[in-house]
């Protein structure tokens, strides 16, 4: 049965690219990332430059997507908002990863007491509605996007903890971990060199799926006024201000809403695609 694996040794990347929806979603993510990095270079106007003489105007040669209630260029605000929204989501996902993964590795590897204590804490965190906890933390720390997204990261940490712990528990029983012990590796070295590289793939899937949620969380918090503070723009804060002018200029709501939808969909599609591709690979006889 080794025969088949050897014969069809195609890479994960090739497999992902084979699915059209996943390829498209990956393309969207690449574009969004480039936009976030290059926003100051490609934005036609300063996103906070007000022009009260041209408020709530429709698309024109000067303002391709029109202007908002303060006469600011909507396209430029969307481009800069991409930077803010993705940056904020990245922060939340990073916090969740840094808090959740090492603890998950430790709990999964050591088992017993450490696992019991850490898992109870994770369960407690999970039992609180995520956004409510984030709002509570953000209120306590003061309204700033950084604080809010750190809070979101803490809320997502148990998810990473669980994935890391579960994957580690499977890996722990593998012979190569025992081989590492008999070779004389310390626990830190075993976790870092032998466990982490083999639990990486489910964690990457988790990162993509969580990124989608983080974008929604950022939008929600900013919509509630707990996120990005004016005059800076994120997709969520644009939505919040635009709702007031829904009847006069519906495009102001539709545009950021659409961008959020596309971004979240893209992250989820790539995450799902990765998971399916990995599941197929694992099912195959080795």
């Amino acid at each position: 049965m080794t025969a088949i694996t050897a014969a069809r040794r195609d890479t994960l990347g090739r497999r992902l690219a084979g699915r059209r929806d996943v390829a498209l979603a990956l393309g969207v993510l690449v574009v969004l990332t480039l936009v976030a990095l290059a926003a100051p270079l490609i934005a036609p106007h300063d996103p906070v430059d007000q022009d009260l003489l041209h408020r709530l105007e429709g698309p024109s040669a000067a303002h391709w997507l029109g202007t908002d209630e303060s006469g600011r260029d909507v396209l430029s605000r969307l481009l800069h908002g991409t930077r803010v929204s993705l940056g904020a989501s990245l922060l939340a996902v990073s916090v969740a990863t840094v808090c959740g993964v090492p603890l998950g590795l430790l709990a999964g590897y050591l088992g017993r007491g450490a696992d019991l204590v850490l898992s109870r804490v994770a369960d407690a965190l999970l039992s609180i509605p995520g956004l409510v906890l984030a709002i509570a933390i953000a209120t306590a720390l003061g309204p700033s996007l950084t604080n809010a997204m750190i809070a979101v990261g803490v809320v997502y940490a148990p998810g990473f903890y669980r994935v890391a712990r579960g994957a580690t528990m499977t890996v722990r029983g593998q012979t190569y971990i025992q081989a590492a012990i008999t070779t004389g590796c310390s626990t830190t070295r075993i976790l870092w060199r032998h466990v982490l590289p083999n639990v990486g793939t489910p964690l990457i899937v988790k990162v993509f799926l969580t990124f989608g949620y983080a974008i929604l969380a950022e939008a929600s918090l900013s919509f509630l006024g707990l996120g990005v503070q004016p005059p800076l723009a994120s997709w969520g804060s644009m939505l919040k201000r635009a709702v007031r002018y829904l009847e006069q200029e519906p495009m102001l709501v539709v545009l950021p809403g659409l961008v959020i939808l596309v971004a979240v969909l893209a992250f989820n599609t790539v995450g799902d695609g990765l998971r399916d591709a990995l599941a197929r690979r694992d099912r195959e006889p080795s």
Partner: peptide
């Protein structure tokens, strides 16, 4: 104990399982 392990090594039954697949 880890230092002493160098004198006492083991070869396992499952030759694929005993090698870290990512290394």
């Amino acid at each position: 104990l880890r230092a002493r392990r160098k004198d006492l090594q083991m070869v396992f039954q499952d030759p694929l399982g005993s090698l870290n697949p990512a290394t």
